[in-house]
Computed example of a mutant assay.
Amino acid sequence: MKIERLSQDKIRIFLTYDDLLERGIQKDDMWREIPKVHELFSEMMDQAYTELGFDASGGPLAVEVFALPAQGMVVIVTRGKVAAGSEDHILEEDDDSEEDIYEMEVTMEQSDVVMYAFRDFEDVIDVCKKLKSASLTEDGRLYSYNGKYILALEPANMETSRHNAVIAVLAEFGEATSVTYAMLEEYGKVIVASGAIQEICTHFSG
């Protein structure tokens, strides 16, 4: 579980699917009101307070959950006013000494885009060559974001075995990123808008 502060009143938490499995939570459970999810949220808020001094108690929270297909989940928590007319969830944590009540507006978003980050352009070239030579895919979009290169692939039309092979190659050269596709679209710089793997292999074939 990685937690980072985005602003005074906003944090981003990145949960891998291993983080969820360790707690006996399936991906689809995040959409449901169950005790395990309440416990996970309390754990996240405790860690946010310990690491960043982010105090989530005593006020409404807007919680956005983004499910990423290969990497895990991104949870963005914002302190402040819950939007009018939104659905509020009250989470209660049972504790002998005190009782924390979180008033939350929860929104969920799921993305099918697989995204991996690469520190060096050489790694991007290597991963593209390997994906193309293994006839896995020639598609993809390449972005520059926050000092890294991010390759985004939409595996919607791929069969599961090929999809898993693509992720294995991406993981060999890069790392799963906690950036959501919406953030990438808004703040990232597009380097290759489509057919990125083919493009890069064509220009860097040596």
Rank of each mutant, 00 (worst) to 15 (best):
D94W: 14
T50H: 12
L61H: 01
H38K: 05
E33N: 12
F66S: 08
Q8N: 14
A156P: 09
V74Q: 03
A196I: 04
K81L: 06
L184V: 07
Y116M: 05
L15K: 02
L151K: 01
L131Y: 01
E172F: 04
Y149F: 12
I197C: 11
R5M: 06
L68S: 03
E51G: 02
A196Q: 02
S86Y: 06
E51D: 10
L142G: 01
K148Q: 10
A83L: 13
A70Y: 05
V75P: 01
F14D: 00
A84S: 04
D46I: 00
E122V: 12
M45I: 02
V114F: 08
S86I: 08
S86D: 08
M45G: 00
E159W: 08
T137S: 13
S205V: 11
I90F: 13
T78Y: 11
Y116T: 04
D88T: 13
M108I: 13
E138Y: 10
K2Y: 10
E92L: 15
K148T: 14
E39Y: 03
E109N: 13
T160N: 12
K189W: 07
S111Y: 07
G59S: 12
D28F: 08
L15C: 07
K81R: 09
V192T: 12
W31C: 11
A70Q: 11
E109K: 10
E186W: 07
P60G: 11
K189D: 05
R32W: 12
V82I: 09
R162K: 11
M30E: 03
F41R: 00
S111F: 03
G53P: 06
D100L: 10
E64Q: 11
D88I: 11
L136E: 02
E199P: 01
S42F: 05
P69S: 15
R12L: 13
L15S: 04
Q71T: 10
K27M: 09
E154R: 13
A48H: 00
G24R: 06
T78G: 14
A84Y: 05
L131A: 04
V127L: 06
A193Y: 11
N157G: 13
K130Y: 04
E154N: 14
V106I: 15
E159L: 15
I200N: 04
R119C: 08
A62F: 04
S133C: 11
I76C: 07
T137G: 13
D19C: 06
S111N: 07
L20P: 00
S178T: 14
E33M: 08
M45Y: 01
R162W: 09
F173A: 02
L136M: 09
L40W: 00
A165V: 02
Y181V: 12
G24Y: 05
A117T: 08
R12Q: 14
I191F: 05
H163M: 11
P155H: 15
D9A: 10
E154A: 06
A196K: 00
G147C: 03
T107E: 10
D123K: 08
T16E: 02
E185T: 08
V169K: 11
N164G: 07
Y149W: 09
K36V: 06
Y49G: 03
